[in-house]
Design a protein around this nucleic acid. Structure first.
Lengths: 220, 220
DNA sequence: CAACTATTCAATTAAACTATTGAATAGTTT
DNA sequence: AAACTATTCAATAGTTTAATTGAATAGTTG
């Protein structure tokens, strides 16, 4: 085989994968699917697009072999095609956070508005948990919590936080986490907790990153 | 700031980066730039496109802050904007090699035609080098060798191999490496060496991967 | 300063991408 | 089987992308 033929084929194939990821909605879908499997309607709801549009984007991801499907009744559940898909997405995300000042700026601005500027890294949280210095709450929906969560975390979905807030110890720092650095449940939780007088912070990333770093997890 | 406003901005910015990488020529350019800095004309030459076209693709990469430039006389040298750019590109490449059977197939097919099917991993090579069981040749151009190479490797650019082939010990295995898994210099070298009766293999990846794994390197 | 080289810019055309809309299909419930 | 839900398909229009061509610019050399 000719050198050029070979290179053209390989880089074309790779570009196809990258192209499948090169859309804001599809990136958001990939990040969502890092939490587990979701139906088309759930994905459309979470990402604020129409069902037909979500379906189309999902076809593109499926075509590129980045996601897989599983039918259950008249619903079709989508999930990531493997850990390497998540790792590639994470590498792109980290690149963006590191290189694109605008992303950092928007994150700062959002967190300022929620008073959740102060964040903990996974390492910092892991150490504090060993010393039992902190209460950790997972503010994702229960379904995602059940598929896997930080060992020792309490599940208080963000909608239920205001009713259950009395259950939390006031004398200890509370750390909230959710899906990842762009997930806003944790910021909402921190805002509410601080209003009620808690010393609250958010984890800078989320559950998938914790898991990949092989820190202690639990599954229900 | 509204949740949706925040997400839209962040994912849009990320998609811009990914879009900048979502073209076969630009991926090939990024892989080339992982070796060091190159002028527009050199990049055009290496990737088989016209100067004007190379310039346009480079503008796209620069716009996305994936590469940086440095003028020297009437030439402009381009280089990667940081290690995180290379790491993101590598994550995408590994994803492709793992998930897309077609890429694996094309690589196999090409290496069959060069009789370079048998490859060594970096770990395997590092161990063999410790035991001095093997001769390692870096078949990239001298300029790239000088910017950094595997410690103990000989530089024999692939065009000079046929004249210098007599200098190599016949009683030892010879391992050739170049820029990465898609670089064909090493395959060309293995083909030539085997024709001359050497026991030759190629490294499965290339210099940048060796360096990132923090295996021993040298610079001239 | 004229001739030359390297790079960038601008305009064009063809192709690909995206969101929207409404219809079609697959499966469930009554 | 009819009504319903979830998903996919197909067609459309507006936008973006890519390669080509030739001209413009920046810098060097004789």
């Amino acid at each position: 085989m000719e050198k050029r033929t070979f290179k053209n084929k390989v880089y074309q194939q790779l570009a196809n994968i990258v192209k499948a990821m090169s859309n804001p909605h599809r990136l958001e879908i990939l990040e969502l699917l890092a939490q587990g499997q979701f139906s088309v309607a759930e994905i459309a709801e979470e990402t604020d697009i129409t069902g037909a549009n979500a379906s189309q984007h999902l076809q593109v991801l499926k075509q590129a072999q980045l996601v897989e499907t599983q039918r259950d009744g008249n619903r079709v559940y989508y999930q990531l095609a493997g850990l390497s898909v998540y790792k590639a997405w994470k590498a792109l995300r980290d690149l963006g956070i590191e290189r694109i000042a605008e992303i950092e700026r928007v994150m700062q601005q959002f967190r300022e508005s929620r008073q959740s500027l102060e964040t903990l890294t996974s390492e910092e949280l892991a150490e504090k948990m060993q010393n039992e210095e902190t209460t950790v709450i997972d503010v994702r929906p229960q379904q995602e919590f059940d598929e896997g969560h930080i060992a020792g975390a309490l599940n208080i979905p963000v909608e239920e936080l205001s009713e259950k807030i009395e259950e939390l110890p006031k004398n200890q720092e509370v750390v909230a986490y959710c899906r990842g650095p762009f997930c806003v449940f944790a910021d909402d939780a921190v805002e509410l907790l601080r209003e009620k007088g808690f010393n609250a912070k958010r984890l800078d990333e989320g559950y998938p990153e914790w898991m990949i770093e092989e820190l202690p997890i639990e599954q229900s």
